[in-house]
Each structure stands twice: as structure tokens, then as C-alpha cells.
């Protein structure tokens, strides 16, 4: 069978996949909004425990990484392989920094006995249990998506190095960009919901 290549088709496929990801997270947003509505005061208090500065830094890191991967796609089209590789490496580094920050943030909370199922958390009351349950579940699932995205970008870097992605065949590269922007998009909503609305 002849090799069938359809970049537009694979882009539609990627977008459809992103839609399923959005719906996946929207299930959690429904849970969040219902429990916020039912436990307004407790959510208000609990959110104050999170470090706004750290959250802001992580937001800026992710936004910047989104810009670098978008630029790398322009670079590959300009046939500037080295710039593309540098920009993608920058994206990976920024993603890793985000995860390291997340690690310290979670570690600090767990150190204070705030984690699902803990006695300390249960003693704070129902609203806090739900808030932190959602916090761990949603940021955890988001972090998992970052890890998957980093692996995906790792493959793209390797393909570019091997010249399997070039200026006239970069559909995989473009799709990795779309995936990474989705991760950014979700964080844009997670950030105000958990850190800002206090």
C-alpha cells in the first residue's frame, strides 16, 4: 500500500485528541465548581495556604515554554535547525523547572501533613479535605501531562537531530506544540482557581 501522508488530517486528529483532554479536565472543573459553591468559606480559607509567588513563577515559566516551542516551529520552517533545537531544549528545561517547583510545593504541603487521607487534613474540616483533594488530583494530573509532553518533545528533538523532521515535513513537531499549549491552557485555569481566588 502506498504511504499515505496527510498533514492536515493528522492535525485534525491531534485537535480531536486535545478536545478529549479538555473534556477530561472539564469533569474535574465541574467537581471543583460544585464543591466551591457548596463550601465557599472553607475553599476561601484553604486557598490562602498556597504560595501565590511560587504559583506565579510557575505560570510565567509555562507561558515562556509555550512561546519557545511555538518559535521552534517557525525556526524549523525557516530551515534553522540549530535554533529550532535550542528553542525546544529551552522548552524542556522550562518544563523540568516547573516540575521541580511543583515537587517542592507538594513536598512542603505533605511535610505539614496536608495530603488526602491524612488525620491532620481531616481535622481541618470537609471543605479543606475537598480543596486539597482537588488540588492534588488536578495539579497531579496536570503534572502527568507535563511529563508526557516532555517525552513527546524529547522525541521531536531526536527526530530533528536525525533530520526526520524538516522544513517540509514537520507535522509531528507541530502536533507536539499543540499538545504543549494544551498543557499551558489548562494551567492558565488551574492557577487562578487554586492560588488566586482566596
Amino acid at each position: 500500500m502506498e504511504v499515505h501522508r496527510d498533514d492536515e488530517g493528522s492535525k485534525i486528529g491531534m485537535w480531536l485528541f486535545l478536545f478529549t483532554e479538555m473534556v477530561l479536565f472539564s469533569g474535574l472543573f465541574i467537581v471543583y465548581s460544585v464543591y466551591r459553591y457548596l463550601n465557599r468559606e472553607a475553599f476561601h480559607q484553604a486557598a490562602a495556604h498556597l504560595d501565590v509567588a511560587l504559583g506565579t513563577i510557575n505560570t510565567i515559566i509555562l507561558l515562556a515554554s509555550s512561546a519557545t516551542i511555538a518559535m521552534s516551529i517557525s525556526a524549523i520552517q525557516y530551515q534553522k535547525k540549530k535554533q529550532a533545537l535550542a528553542l525546544l531544549t529551552a522548552t524542556v528545561v522550562l518544563g523540568l523547572v516547573f516540575l521541580v517547583n511543583k515537587y517542592f510545593e507538594w513536598g512542603e504541603k505533605i511535610g505539614h501533613g496536608i495530603y488526602p487521607g491524612s488525620e491532620t487534613l481531616a481535622s481541618y474540616g470537609h471543605g479543606d479535605v475537598l480543596f486539597f483533594g482537588l488540588y492534588y488530583f488536578m495539579t497531579g494530573l496536570h503534572a502527568l501531562h507535563i511529563v508526557i509532553g516532555l517525552v513527546f518533545i524529547g522525541f521531536v528533538i531526536w527526530y530533528i537531530a536525525k533530520d526526520r523532521i524538516t522544513h517540509d515535513n514537520f507535522s509531528v513537531h507541530e502536533n507536539s506544540g499543540l499538545y504543549w499549549h494544551l498543557v499551558d491552557l489548562i494551567w492558565i485555569f488551574l492557577f487562578p482557581l487554586f492560588y488566586l481566588i482566596t
Binding site: R5, D7, T56, I60, A67, A70, S74, N169, F191
Partner: peptide, 23 residues
């Protein structure tokens, strides 16, 4: 398969600046 619009770096940097400002 290859008629893509190439977006200049400048556009992305401006958008990034706007996003950080809004944050």
C-alpha cells in the same frame, strides 16, 4: 501538505509579553 503560514518570532514574543502582563 506544505503551505504553512510562518509566524515571525516577534509575534510570539509580543503575545508572551501580553500574557505575562495579564498574569
Amino acid at each position: 501538505n506544505s503551505s504553512h503560514h510562518i509566524v515571525p518570532y516577534r509575534v510570539y514574543l509580543i503575545i508572551l509579553a501580553i500574557l505575562i502582563l495579564m498574569t
